[in-house]
Amino acid sequence: MNKFTTLTGVAAPLPMINVDTDKIIPKQFLKTIKRTGLGKALFFEMRYDDQGKERPDFVLNKPAYRAAKILVAGANFGCGSSREHAPWALLDFGISCVIAEDFADIFHNNCFKNGILPIKLAKEEMAKLFDDAERGANATLTVDLDSQTIRGPDGGTIHFEIDPFLKHLLLNGLDDVGLTMQKNAKIDGYEEKQKHLQPWLAAKS
C-alpha cells in the first residue's frame, strides 16, 4: 500500500450530501476482477451524459479541477454499498484525500486500506474549505498527516483528528494482513480456547 505523508494539490468541491458508493462508481464497473483502471468510471453518471460525453458543469470536468488530488465533500460521504471499488476509483483518478463532515463507516475503513486519507471536520471548518475549493486553480491545499493539519491557499491552517493506529498505518503504508499474520500464535490460542468453549464453531480436525 502507498504511504500517505503529505499531499499538496487542487481540492475539488462536491457540496452534495449522502453521496453513495453507487454514485462514486456504478455497478457496471464492478464486474472487473482487478483493482486498477477504475478512475475513468469515477462519478460516472454525474461525469458523463447518456452518450458518454463529459458533462462540462461537473466539477471534475472543469479545467481547474481535472487534476484534483483532494475532494471536499458533503456529509455522509460514501454511504451505501461496501464496494472497495469506490476508493479504488478515487485513487486511480488521482484523489487520495477526501474531506467531509462525516463518512459512512465501511467507506471510511476502506480508505485506510488503500492509502486514502479521509478527514472529518466540523461544519464551520467545512464551510471554509468549500470556499477555498471554489477558487478553481487557486484551490490548492496542503495536507500534512504527521502534524494533522490542512494548510489553505491563504496560509491558514486547520487541525484535524485521526485515530493514532490508522495514522500509523497510513504514514508507513503498512499492510494489515502481514501485520496480523505476525500474531499467528495469538490466533492459534484463540482457536484452541474456542474448541473448549464453543466446540460447535471450531474447525473439525
Binding site: 472497495e84 494489515d176 494482513v177 496480523t180
Partner: peptide
C-alpha cells in the same frame, strides 16, 4: 459488511 482488502484479511487470518 467489509471491504475487499478486509475480505483478504479474513481469508488469510
Amino acid at each position: 459488511g467489509i471491504g475487499t482488502t478486509e475480505v483478504e484479511h479474513v481469508l488469510a487470518t
